[in-house]
């Protein structure tokens, strides 16, 4: 095995050095490749707006105008407010979702009945897009932030609970034995072994919960109109639609994309600093 590898290495080195004609798109660094594609797409987008006139031009904005609208929106403050409103409601809902998921998981770990209940509820509720409950929540709770929070917390709870309980259930029994051997039990065993050992599942649960919550809140704000004490990003888009401000609709959409990407990066970073660094999850 090692002999084969040694025999191969020099060959690869030679071919990479000499055969410049073999350098293809795939040989470029990923960042460069993606950067070129991004610039090309933005260029195509900008170009497409040049050919539009009349009604079409009403419906389309190029990346430069959209960039300007984002800068304006942040300078004016209403895009900032919308972003903060959405994030505040989402984070509150996620916090509630995490607490409820933790309780459900504890109950599920603690008794077989709890486990059955969690599994059944998840199987029933998880496939239902959370936004489908919005009309009902509005009738039950009213046209206020609480209805939104309930809907989004609901979107977060189930993927989180099922991930965390899977994580707890699949903790390596040897690690648990080591934990008990050094004298851990009860809550100290949960904190010292269960939680860190289940971290890959917990992080992926939070990731999925966030993704569900993020999609749900934007959709809910679009339907809901003003949410509580000020509209979020979904409302920002809808508001722009009412006032025929196409560039602001694009600005809202792009802001949503950017925040989505930012959170994905944040979670990736979190994973790289923890579970990937610890070899508990492959990159």
């Amino acid at each position: 095995m090692s002999e084969t590898r040694e025999a191969e290495q020099p060959v690869t080195a030679v071919s990479a050095g000499s055969a410049h004609h073999r350098r293809t798109w795939g040989d470029l660094p990923t960042v460069l490749r993606r950067g070129i594609v991004l610039v090309a797409l933005l260029g195509a987008w900008q170009l497409s707006t040049l050919f539009m006139t009349g009604a079409q031009a009403q419906l389309m904005r190029g990346p430069l105008e959209v960039g300007e609208a984002i800068v304006d929106g942040f300078a004016r403050g209403d895009l900032v407010d919308a972003t903060l409103t959405t994030l505040r409601i989402l984070l509150l809902s996620m916090a509630i979702g995490i607490v409820v998921a933790a309780l459900l998981t504890t109950f599920a770990m603690w008794s077989k009945l709890g486990d059955d209940i969690l599994n059944l509820l998840t199987a029933m509720i998880n496939p239902l897009p959370a936004i489908a409950l919005l009309p009902l929540a509005m009738i039950w709770i009213g046209l206020n932030t609480t209805a939104l929070v309930v809907i989004i917390a609901n979107a977060v709870i189930w993927p989180l609970a099922i991930n965390v309980s899977t994580g707890f259930r699949t903790v390596n029994p040897t690690l648990l034995a080591v934990g008990r051997n050094i004298g851990l039990s009860g809550w100290r065993l949960v904190r010292g072994v269960y939680l860190p050992a289940a971290l890959p599942h917990i992080v992926s649960g939070i990731k999925t919960g966030w993704a569900f919550g993020w999609r749900t809140i934007i959709a809910a704000e679009l339907v809901f109109g003003v949410a509580g004490e000020g509209g979020g990003l979904g409302y920002f888009i809808n508001y722009a639609r009412f006032f025929n401000r196409t560039e602001d609709m694009f600005a809202g959409i792009v802001t949503i994309m950017i925040i989505g990407i930012a959170f994905d990066l944040l979670f990736s970073l979190l994973e790289r600093k923890t579970v990937i660094k610890w070899g508990m999850k492959t990159a």
Partner: peptide
Amino acid sequence: KPGPDRAVVFQEFDQLFPW
């Protein structure tokens, strides 16, 4: 009960806390 006065070394390589 289990206790550190009887420390155990297991066969499994994954007996260390990976974190």
